[in-house]
Structure formats: structure tokens, C-alpha cells
Amino acid sequence: MKMPPFRVLSPKSLDEALHMSRDLSDSGEAFDWIAGGTDLLPNYKWHINVKSHVISLSSIPELRKLSGNHIGAMVSINDLAEDAVTHPVLAKAANSVASVLIRKSGTVGGNICLDTRCYWVNQSETWRESIDWCYKCDCGTGADCRVIPNQNTLCVATYQADLAPVLMCLDATIHLASPAGTRSLPLCEFFELDGMTRNVLESGELVTHITIPEDSAEWSGDYQKLRQRDSWDFPEAGVAVLWKGISSSGPESLRVATTGLESIPSLHLEETKEALSRWRGAETIEDLAESIRKAVKPVQNTWFSPSYRRKMVKVLTKRACRDLLVS
């Protein structure tokens, strides 16, 4: 399988990268940022949204910084998983990504910005032609969504990355840079519907790093992931639960976030607020898990069926809360 030809630019600093991005935009050329390439290149091989240029971020040292509260976008998922300073729940999620080979190439920034996936789009060009294309990759045909037909306004491709829910529960902040300047925002505000928009990144903008609040060490919790195989597979559902300040009347704070179920990951604020308002231990966890199940709306575009994934969200939430009861 051959990728269409494209030009690779390799800036040595963030400034140079942003210059290049501006130059390309000015001359009307489309481009993609490329980090580890484990998501982008397979899509290129399938001729999905191919651009004429890619700007590689691999030679920019400032994007590689990793400390307890600062994770550079170009830190590899494997380094994140194995570093002693990484929050244990984040390390667990990182360790569950794909396979060790992919974790060594794949980066944190790439994982956060992972393209959404769908049975009807992650296919070869010949295959997509045989279904007359789809909304996400219509190739100029104005094709309809194949998952939920007869609606031409929403792409329901699924966001299947593992790191986001844990980082959202840790209340991480994401830092972006573009030729126009830099900005920072809470990670949960970074994602934006639909499956094509995915996030708030503007053209020419990129993720530089993520910061985690100083109190992250006080938070404990778990990440639970549903998939067919213990390697390679994207999450069919992922649930992160983090809490701090545990006492007999329940945790002081509790956060639950899910991934692999919709076009963006979700932080479930209302459900946890409800749970904390009248804490009754195991019973509350059961109710919380049920409310999370009700809150997610997966569609039929991955390996497992939506109904199974929803049921499993409940099981995974309960399992992620297991230590909440023990302690």
C-alpha cells in the first residue's frame, strides 16, 4: 500500500515550526502536523484526508520536556508510562495504549489529538468507494453518514484514545501555540463535537504541552478499558475515576471521565456531583455507574455493539471505583 506523495518539513524549534505553518497557510497549502505518525500514516496509507505537506515535530527539543506536572506533546507514550514521576493512573492508561512498539513511536500530543475512528471510514480507498464514501471523508461527493444515515450534519466517528479521560480527571490544562500566539485551556474544553471537528485547534495551531495541577499526587483512582485483545486494540470503552480526600462520608472530590464511546471524551460532572451529594458507599457507586451508562451514547461503528459497550461502561465504572470502597 502506497501513500500519496507529500513533502516533509523538519523544523528544529517551535518558532521555526510556527513560521513554516504560517508560510504554508499564506501560500494556500494544506498540511498536517506529524508527531509519532502512528495515527496519521495509516490514514495516509488509506488515502484519508491526505495533505500535500507534513510538518514533523520530532526535532523540537522543547516539546519533549517531562516532569511531574509538565508533559511535553512529543513525550512518547512509552516514556510517559515508564517514568517514575508519572501519576500512577495516567501511567496505567498509557501502558494500555496499543502495543509497546506503537507506544514507543506514539506521543502524548498525538494521542490527545487522535483522529476519530469509524468502521466506515478507516478503510482503503477502494473499499470506501464501494460504499459510495461517507460524510467524514466524502471526497467531494457530499456523501451521507453511513452509521446514522439520512443526516448530513454530524459525524459520529468515535474518539478512541486512552490518555484524555485520566488527564481530564486530573484537571489538566492543555497549552496550544499558533503563529498568532499561545493560549491555554482546561483539557475538557479542548474537545469539541463532532467527529470531524474533534477539538478546538485552529488551522496552524498545535499542542505544545499539558500541565497537571500541583495537587495531583493527592488524587488516586483507576483507569479501566474494554477491548477484545490485550494488545493493539483501541478502547471500545474506557473509564477513568479519580478521587481525593476519602473519609467515612465518601470522597471529598470525585471525577469520572469516559472515552471510546462518542466523538469526544466526556468528563461526567453532573453524575459525580449527584453521587457526592448523598454518599451511601457501594449503593452510590452502583447508582453512579448506572448514571454513567445512561449518560453515554455510543453508536455502531466499532468492534463491539453499542448496547454491550454501554453495559460495560457500568461494569468498568464500578471496577474503577473498587478502591474507593476498600479505603
Partner: peptide, 14 residues
């Protein structure tokens, strides 16, 4: 699923 990601051949873990 005409590809080896979605055609689920057991991995070494299984």
C-alpha cells in the same frame, strides 16, 4: 474488517 487491526487474531497476551 478487511485489515489486521479489526480482524481479531489473538495476540501473544491471549
Amino acid at each position: 474488517n478487511p485489515d489486521l487491526l479489526d480482524y481479531k487474531i489473538p495476540s501473544v497476551h491471549e
